[in-house]
Amino acid sequence: MSANARTAVLERVRAAKGGAAELAKAASAWGLLPRAYHRDGDLQRTAMLERFIDRLHDYDAHVEFCDDAGLAGAIARALYACGAKRVLVPVGLDVGCPEELERVEDAALRVSELDRVDAVVTRCTVAIAETGTLVLQTVPGQGRRAATLVPDIHVCIVRERDVVMTVPEAFNRLALTTTLPTTFVSGPSATADIEMTRIKGVHGPRTLYVVLEAEAG
């Protein structure tokens, strides 16, 4: 029956347009579509990072910088600041969490177990300055999607060189990994469903920390 529906719907589509479409023709027509919008950002590195930080703050994310204490120190400051005690660490994350805190490896934990950790620390694939967005994918160091969703605090490490200015630049970076589960995160979970007042934190993490990792050397 579903096969019938399939045939029927496709036939209706073709009848409506007056003929069947070919993928090869679609591809060449696609190549000619107007794309006069900006692909690349026009800001210098420092100004771009400033824009990124500004956008993050604007949407209620916190930003932590690496000082002499290094990346581990910045992560620790973020975790202490929000009072996290049990910290989830995805497989493949190359940095530790402070020894005083309880470190929980995500070895296929059940959801109810994820719900009992306070925070999660991950990296990201790319970040977008213009929109204050972090792009997470299911790869080592970034965890599966549930790991950055169920805990109430998310600490995300962003290497400065992974920050791009525009959305199209980010999509360029994702071009080879388009089928991985991918999540764009822009600030902590929020809603404006009540009188259009933006309220931070509904179901996703209510606190988002971005740790900006400077270029090595």
């Binding site: 956008r55 949407y59 296929a108 977008i128 213009e130 929109t131 204050g132 967005t133 299911t138 599966r144 999607r145 549930a146 959305v167 388009t178 089928t179 991985l180 589960p181 991918t182 999540t183 764009f184 995160v185 822009s186 600030g187 902590p188 979970s189 929020a190 996703g204």
Partner: peptide, 17 residues
């Protein structure tokens, strides 16, 4: 500028979802 979450997934992914 961007809503808090955009999810993109393809079929099923072992160990995630």
């Amino acid at each position: 500028r961007m809503n808090p979450y955009n999810s993109i997934w393809t079929g099923v992914h072992p160990g995630d979802g």
